[in-house]
Design a protein around this nucleic acid. Structure first.
Length: 564
RNA sequence: GCCCGGGUAGCUCAGCCUGGAUAGAGCACCUGCCUUCUACGAAGAAAUUCGAGGCGAGCAGGGGGUCGCAGGUUCGAAUCCUGUCUCGGGCGCCA
């Protein structure tokens, strides 16, 4: 249809002895700000230089030169310096609806190559809090995985859990020295509090770090059985807690990598880099001097030869490519680690790993309080477990207000899904590269641009579908303005998924979902479906909306509900 | 100091890559509406139908903007370029 319009414009211009390429015309062709202005608009500003006339006049000339309207189009009008084209909306409507109802869950899927992509995300550290910031990275990774799959990729979800390193040493040291009389509790906030206590104590006593270093060295050596046992036990508590969270967040991983398992390979790789003189020793530590590349200095091994996360990341990269034969490796990691990731990729390149070029970084910005950083080091944060409980309690109140007969199990289930939708949506609707200012009151807001609003719109649609007995038909004798708007919005979905994939940005999908629901709610208020003359058509439109909203929410990792 | 990323309504954000029709949303505030999640009454064996209100996780309308500031490019700048102010993050043994 677009090419027909391009050709129509081209012919009209040729009659006026002006040659413009198809590409040039397509570049200028745009969508008018509202449907009553048409479906495609051709702005004439750029022609005023060539034709030496007022663009408004040029629009009139083009319209006049076109003459009769081609059969496939409904109308061509001018509006100021624009020539506006109207498609045959009834045809458009039935083709959009037929496509959606035929393709169902596959509507919007794209075939953009079937690369095997590994996407690493979440990377929660054991022995520390899983707070709101971690929800963001986890939700983002899962959503990106779904978007890539939807566009034809084979996706491998990988988690890289920080179960070794200085933070673990601090926790073990602190527990042994100050808390050993406390029983080890299966309680996230208790585990998090020991870490906070360690950081506080270390900030006060300068010499204490030496004790932690000894614990660290000993843990890495693995010979002190008592320490290793304590590590294993506490590590498992953290990992089990994470697993429960992942399940609630509707995500899963195909592979779990652990920092602990990278230590040996990391040492080997660094020794190799030193032998090849790619890495050098400085003050006894092994470093990569990347100043030439404007990436500063990257420290790989401490002077006591224990490994740093930099070296472990080299080992991880090697393992990802060698063992899993992937075409593309995406790292969904905090934006504050930007330099680290670039140092990693550059080092892989200098070390001669051919896969270096296949690595990509998706920075995830912080979730902050209005007054500053959220931190597991200071304990100034909101734990996932606390937040989900509060939001779910709030959701339950809402459900109870409306529904008298509901089993406890059903109530819990619905409340959890609504809360997850609320929390995930709030994390995904914003561009990943920008900080989110977290306010607890806003997490409890279920109105407007929120996850629950989207779920609510879905339940409205499914309720209508349940009640209607009409036979579905995608054909309509006439179309209301709100119906046209909804159809046009539905037709945009395939393009939206491609945009989200290219940008690796779920907020594109989130913004679309919200706008789609808004348009549907406007339609809902202005067009009665049940018992209307046009019920057969409207039901098919509602069914299409339900399907597309479901598909787009799926890409965000949000499950829909029939009832709320 | 150097390197990134921001600055758009009181607050939180979208639009910026690829410049165009009055700069869009949400929250909060004000005014209306409310038929199709749920929920009340009546009729019916039931699906359901009819009726009058309420709720709000619904809709409409309203107030609120020097798109940080200053230049430049352009017929046209929130969008591109330069400068500048300001906030956040990062910058050799944390992850």
């Amino acid at each position: 249809m677009k090419s027909l319009i391009i050709q129509t414009i081209k012919k009209a211009l040729e009659k006026k002895k002006i040659k413009i390429s198809d590409e040039e015309i397509e570049k200028h062709l745009e969508a008018p700000p509202s449907a009553d202005l048409g479906d495609y608009a051709f702005p004439c500003f750029f022609l005023s230089g060539i034709m030496k006339q007022d663009p408004k006049r040029i629009a009139l000339i083009i319209r006049e030169t076109i003459g009769n309207i081609p059969a496939e189009l409904e109308d061509i009008q001018t509006e100021g310096p624009y020539v506006n084209f109207f498609l045959n909306r009834k045809d458009l409507a039935s083709s959009v609806i037929d496509t959606i109802l035929k393709q169902k869950d596959a509507y919007g899927k794209a075939n953009m190559g079937n690369d095997k992509v590994m996407i690493e995300f979440s990377q929660a550290n054991t022995h520390k809090a899983f707070h709101v910031g971690h929800i963001r990275g986890t939700s983002l990774g899962e959503s990106l995985a779904r978007i890539l799959e939807f566009c034809g990729n084979k996706v491998i979800r990988a988690n890289y859990q920080g179960d070794s390193g200085m933070h673990v040493a601090k926790w073990i040291w602190c527990y042994k020295k100050y808390h050993s009389r406390e029983k080890i509790k299966n309680d996230e906030s208790w585990i998090a509090s020991i870490y906070v206590d360690a950081v506080e104590r270390l900030a006060k006593g300068e010499k204490l770090q030496e004790e932690v270093d000894i614990v660290n060295k000993s843990l890495e050596g693995g010979k002190n059985k008592e320490l290793v046992e304590l590590w294993k036990k506490t590590r498992k508590l953290s990992l089990d807690a994470f697993e429960k969270i992942y399940k609630e967040l509707n995500t899963h991983f195909d592979f779990y990598f652990f920092e602990k398992d990278m230590e040996k390979d990391a040492t080997r790789i660094v020794e190799d880099l030193l032998a090849k003189k790619i890495a050098i020793l400085s003050d006894g530590a092994a470093i990569m001097d990347l100043k030439k590349h404007n990436l500063g200095v990257w420290v790989l091994l401490r002077k006591d030869k224990t490994v740093l996360y930099s070296a472990k990341d080299l080992a991880l990269a090697e393992r990802k490519f060698n063992q899993y034969k992937i075409d593309r490796s995406i790292y969904v990691v905090g934006a504050e680690q930007k330099l680290h990731l670039h140092q990693l990729f550059k080092t892989l390149e200098l070390a001669g790993f051919p896969q270096a070029k296949k690595c990509e970084y998706v920075p995830v910005s912080e979730v902050r309080f209005p007054w500053g950083k959220m931190s597991s080091r200071t304990g100034d944060n909101v734990l996932y477990s606390e937040l989900i409980k509060q939001v779910a309690d709030f959701a339950k109140k809402g459900i109870k207000k409306r529904t008298k007969k509901i089993s406890d199990k059903e109530l819990e289930g619905r409340a959890l899904k609504i809360s997850i939708a609320a929390i995930k949506y709030s994390m995904l609707k914003q561009n990943p590269n920008r900080n989110i200012i977290f306010k607890k009151e806003e997490a409890m807001n279920f109105e407007g641009d929120t996850g629950p609003y989207l779920l609510y719109s879905y339940t409205r649609a499914s309720s209508i579908l349940k009640k209607s007995k009409a036979k579905i038909s995608s054909k309509s004798k006439n179309l209301e303005q709100k119906e046209i708007e909804l159809i046009k919005e539905l037709s945009k979905f395939p393009e939206i998924t491609i945009n989200a994939k290219k940008a690796l940005d779920p907020s594109v999908i989130a913004n679309y979902s919200y706008h789609l629901a808004q348009v549907f709610n406007e339609f809902y208020h202005s067009c009665q479906v049940l018992n209307s003359e046009n019920e057969a058509f409207r039901v098919s439109l509602v069914a299409s909306f339900e399907q597309v909203l479901k598909n787009s929410l799926y890409l965000l990792g949000i499950e829909v509900l029939d009832k709320m």
